[in-house]
Amino acid sequence: MLRFLARRITFGVIVMWIVATVVFVLYFLAPNDVARTLAGREASPSTVEAIRHNLGLNRPLLTQYGSFLWKALHGNLGYSYINSVSVVTLIAQRIWVTISLVAGGAAIWLVLGVGAGVVSAIRPRSFADRATTGLALFFYSMPTFLLGEAFLLLLFFELHLAGLNWFPGSGYVSLAQSVGGWARHLILPWLTIALVTAATYTRLTRTSMLEVMGEDYIRTARAKGLTERRVTLRHGLRAALTPVVTQFGIDVGTLLGGAIVTENVFGLPGLGQLIITSILDQDLPTIIGLVLLASAFVVVANIVVDFLYAVLDPRVRLT
């Protein structure tokens, strides 16, 4: 167990190191004036000079690379000259928005997706199966921005015209400020991200459940005289969850790096919005910081998934 964790964390560190190196090569070895690029387009010559000095761009390359890694390792992702604030601060201001969005959305899509998958797997080719599959396909093929805009139009704009301000159209209220406000501002984004994602889980769960429900141990469970509900959930779903867990890890890990579309449609000041603005501003330190952060989320998600595997299936050995 400890060996497993140590191995996976070592592996994760190596992946992060590779990502950092690639980023370094791309931005620092690029054949242009890094200081000028970093400073942004409208920076004064004195700022550019200051940056050049700060970054030690006159030093040998390996020294630069070493100090880049060393700083990143200590949580120093550099300074956003355009926003006049450190990248870490910039990320810290926004990360909770993205976490709130992804956590709530994930909870909804997990319950919706897996629930619908179970329902349709219980009676394959029944009306319930066809209806859920159809609905899942509908939302699956729906672009996120379109669903988001549709929600805005119907549940914000139309209701607003009718004098009902149930769902705000944009913005974010932190959990610390007001729990109700937080949830109210997030409900539409949650639904958007959840409905678009849930379809994958419905199909995964359905396929996996159909396979598991034909297994011998399900017949054993029935022969024991268990209720059908217990057979389906405790014996069937439990065994069918493995692929779902993998998908969940990947999705959450990826989205935590920034739910770009949803955040932008609903004007949520999260990491996804920061990605867009930093790219538009050519705010290189921020972009680099976000890339590193997103990679870290994916790496951690992978470790957690492997760990959950072993918790779910005792046959999996953590070595």
């Binding site: 141990y217 054993t220 005792p314």
Partner: peptide, 15 residues
């Protein structure tokens, strides 16, 4: 009425 099956490898729940 209890029942036992042909393949004991797959008849018990692995989890």
């Amino acid at each position: 009425i209890a029942m036992i099956f042909q393949d004991p490898l797959s008849s018990l729940h692995p989890h």
